[in-house]
């Protein structure tokens, strides 16, 4: 039976192998990962797979776009007010505060308060207050720094430019 000649672009091109050293290295890496992975997935494979794949997806498809968007809103908002250069004075304290919230969320939100108190004998109440105080200090410090720099810039301006 005569074969119809297909245009070259439609034919699936064979994937080239690539360089051999990385290939070998990745094979070794996968072998070790599989050896440990079999044990990691032994008890609750679905739960663990959900956590590993889910954490990568949650980070890359939710967390990163979310803080990228938040940053863009701040930059655009300040830009609209003609203050784009002052973005860092908002961005830095906000980023640091959110970082602390992200890392210590179970303690700050109080979601483990009961177990925490019963296990350690410590009060679970201070975390939210302390995080809020640190946040206030970060924004306060940033505002003071901005005020200081604006003042200094005004002083250094030659009087003729008024």
């Amino acid at each position: 039976m005569p074969r119809l000649p297909l245009p070259r672009t439609v034919l699936p091109r064979r994937l080239p192998l690539g360089s051999p050293f990385p290939l070998l290295l990745l094979a070794c890496s996968f072998a070790l990962a599989a050896y440990a992975g079999v044990r990691l997935f032994a008890d609750d494979w679905f739960g663990v797979a959900l956590w590993i794949v889910g954490s990568a997806l949650l980070h890359d498809l939710v967390l990163v776009p979310l803080y990228g968007l938040a940053d863009r809103v701040v930059v655009r908002g300040l830009g609209a007010a003609g203050q784009r250069g002052r973005t860092p004075y908002v961005r830095v304290p906000a980023a640091l505060s959110l970082l602390l919230l992200l890392v210590w969320f179970p303690l700050i939100s109080g979601m483990t308060a009961q177990r925490y108190q019963l296990a350690t004998g410590l009060s679970p109440d201070g975390f939210l207050t302390r995080w809020l105080l640190i946040t206030a200090a970060l924004f306060g410090g940033s505002a003071l720094l901005l005020a200081f720099r604006v003042r200094r810039a005004a002083k250094q301006r030659p009087p003729a430019s008024h």
Binding site: L15, P16, L17, G18, S19, P22, L23, L26, A27, F30
Partner: peptide
Amino acid sequence: ARSVTHALE
């Protein structure tokens, strides 16, 4: 993927 190696990577 540009190559098998790239896909594995």
